[in-house]
Design a protein around this nucleic acid. Sequence first.
DNA 1: TGGCCATTTGTGAACGGTAACAGTTTCGGG
DNA 2: CCCGAAACTGTTACCGTTCACAAATGGCCA
Lengths: 370, 370
Amino acid sequence: MATPEPAPDHDPVAYQRLPALRPRPGKERGTVMRDVAKLAGVSHQTVSRVINEHPNVRAETRERVLAAMRSLNYRRNLAARTLATRESHTLGIIGFETTLFGPESMLYGIESAARAAGYLVSVATVRELTHRTVLEAVDRLAQHDVDGIIAIAPKPAVTTALTHAPGGLICVAVGGSGAGSDPFPRVRVDNDTGARLVTRHLLDLGHATVHHVAGPPDWPEAQSRVDGWRETLYEAGAVVPAVSAGWWDAAAGYEQGRRLAADPDVTAIFCANDRIALGVLRALHEAGRRVPDEVSVAGFDDMPDSGYFLPPLTTVHQDFAEMGRRALALLLRHMGRADGETPPEDVVVAPRLITRASSAPPPGSRRSRQ
Amino acid sequence: MATPEPAPDHDPVAYQRLPALRPRPGKERGTVMRDVAKLAGVSHQTVSRVINEHPNVRAETRERVLAAMRSLNYRRNLAARTLATRESHTLGIIGFETTLFGPESMLYGIESAARAAGYLVSVATVRELTHRTVLEAVDRLAQHDVDGIIAIAPKPAVTTALTHAPGGLICVAVGGSGAGSDPFPRVRVDNDTGARLVTRHLLDLGHATVHHVAGPPDWPEAQSRVDGWRETLYEAGAVVPAVSAGWWDAAAGYEQGRRLAADPDVTAIFCANDRIALGVLRALHEAGRRVPDEVSVAGFDDMPDSGYFLPPLTTVHQDFAEMGRRALALLLRHMGRADGETPPEDVVVAPRLITRASSAPPPGSRRSRQ
DNA sequence: TGGCCATTTGTGAACGGTAACAGTTTCGGG
DNA sequence: CCCGAAACTGTTACCGTTCACAAATGGCCA
């Protein structure tokens, strides 16, 4: 009965002698490389070569290993790989914990691009954008061995904090307005040009000048929009009205809008974003000033539903998801090189004017009478 | 010449014999436990005890170790810890890659609560909610050793896919409407009650009946709102009009709204969310039907700016950030127990009616004349 | 047939922590 | 003063992968 040779698993190596892998309480062990190697009759190193697509593996061997992997439903342990290679295949995103439209949609753009490139995305948000909070976020991500960081960085506090990131951690900023002195690359929209497009559009319609409801003064993006608006007016020889500013929401727009609505000379208002524009529209409506017949209104962002405002909003489109994708591409490119190889070039995304019913010639103009 | 005993540094242990730690190309080694141990004159295990706050360490020793850690700016390597303990201190979130208001704000709630609990959050999004895509997302998170998963799960495809998650991975669903047969806990808003609140509100104002513009038919949340609406009408003895449905955006609302605007019998419209309501408002406006004088409109969600619609929108508030926090708390509670210990209880969040200017008594009613 | 090089495979030692156990103090009490 | 328990600390062996190097295999040509 007993075969002459007990055939104790004809394995080439003595894996049997290894002590039984101790199972942790609560978690059963999954199959590991050794299990696959044993089943395929090869060494663990060969299995490693197969999953890493190393060229020097005989086709027949590779097949046997792959079959073993399939039959055992093997998944490689990324923690072990991270430990050995110092690459986690995880990217960090530093976000701003507020429901602003832009940052959110960027996340999806980044994540899907990261997934395609074989990376997982971890998120660290900060409640307020200060040097300290951003540093804590960087630290948290660094501890988890992220290979790179994309910081949604609308304010300078973020970028200055990033310069203190641990060495070797590649960072890319997205959003904001490049001060030109960043130590790392940035993807941003050309806010200045966007503001010029709208302002020019309103002037071309025949308005004597354009009023502006700005975003928070300490946000460079808001400042760039102010600059683009102001310079366009200046170049056109138009009066430059005083700027009123507030937060990025409809409440701020409403508040400033009430003031503007009371001034009969106001015929065109450029708002720093669509939410502000919504508040302005409401203020004008309450004051009985019709849009666009008496006053034209324009926004910035092109939020998904701004085409359904009353009236549909003229605005400047920025493709946040695309910016996310570009930021990821930029990050990967810089990660591929040795540190400091490539200069911190910026990617500037062009905005696009979307004209809708909220902008029209001013009352009494020739064109409006036709 | 050769001294009999080379007196190799009077260190208690023979760390000198260990080969120099090889630096990886491109990445310099950080300080590790051994460095701290050496500086503090203790073993690496004692350092480990200190960072893990093990009680049995002499106060004086602990201080020495802490001082060494500070002076070397030591950070522990989480990959190594994960490998040893099988706990990554990372949680996974499965999200839906679309700019829907709810899911986004939940993310922030989850992340900040996770941070407080010492966890990092990794995100896997899916472009469409199918069994396969969700499984891929789970797999990706599982490979990265997440300790638990929160799935933003508005459709059943998500939950059925989750049942195939690898053993030992604790899952919690958030959103959707519990079918009652889920194998794991869920945090959700009581959509049925929310719909009843609005419908009842409109009926109480004197409307003969309430029309409904629904969300996608295959979304249980949309269905629950339909049910709550329908039953309230039924109980009140009101006519139950046909339901029109579409996507969750303003375009859908506009399309359905045009149809409803053409029907002079329509005096009250309950929309499945605020964005749909925005589209309906526009359609009514274009048709010359005044809100709320001729037609009342209500929404669902209480988006940040819905108080600035024209007119300000009556709606049902749901606190997404709070739901995110609750989901996290639920997940942590289940992770603390052995699997299957606690029954998959659900957390149901109560919605709140927010009455604003878009709802009023129907034209010709006694109350509206006063 | 033998030798040399290229290809393929195996061995042992990292990677940086934690777990288990063993050894060394310290201290109170008989 | 000695003994045992409790408190503290050190030693060794893992966790599951990759890397560096060594060994075996095979092909080709002299």
